[in-house]
């Protein structure tokens, strides 16, 4: 990957925590022609997400992601719990977590920020806007923001 002159000097890994295959597909479609992404991994529930991050079990060989896209409503372990665990883990808490969810509920927004989410995004209904939003995430977090060293 070509290092972006404005941001990262290296390609980044993204972990998408999303149980809805439609959304997984939409995110993948949106990032399709991205230049800066090394790899996007997907897990579909909260436990898997934490196992992935802690390189447990079958995830022993994965690399730690540079950015986490986290849905809130997840099976087995809720996105809020996952967020809480990440942000209370000294090893993991510096990884930016973008909460991207269908929920517009104020309590979800509030709770996410209280749990130190790095940002909160509501998934747009319109496809084009959705694509735009995901691209914005990519643009902002992967090219503008200076991420901590891996």
């Amino acid at each position: 990957m070509v290092p972006n002159n404005a941001g990262q000097a290296r390609p980044v890994d993204i972990l998408l925590v999303e149980d809805n295959p439609g959304d997984v597909r939409l995110v993948r479609e949106s990032l399709h022609d991205g230049k800066v992404i090394n790899q996007m991994s997907t897990v579909t529930d909260g436990r898997e997400a934490l196992a992935y991050l802690r390189k447990e079990g079958s995830f022993a060989r994965v690399s730690r992601p540079d950015l986490i896209l986290l849905d809130l409503n997840l099976p087995r372990k809720d996105g809020r719990e996952v967020l809480a665990e990440i942000k209370s883990d000294p090893d993991l808490r510096r990884i930016p977590v973008v909460v991207i969810t269908s929920s517009q509920a104020e309590e979800d927004i509030l709770k996410s920020y209280n749990l130190h989410a790095n940002c909160y995004i509501t998934k747009p209904v319109d496809l084009n806007r959705f694509v735009q939003v995901v691209k914005s995430i990519e643009d902002f977090w992967l090219t503008i923001v200076k991420l901590p060293p891996a």
Binding site: N20, G22, D23, L26, E29, L72, N73, T101, S102, S103, Q104, A105, E107, D108, K123, P124, V125, D126, L127, N128, F130
Partner: peptide, 21 residues
Amino acid sequence: AYVASHDLQEPLRMVASFTQL
């Protein structure tokens, strides 16, 4: 209200997004 804001939105988005796609 919560269901309306979240659980109803998701299937809606699926319908809208994928018909558009």
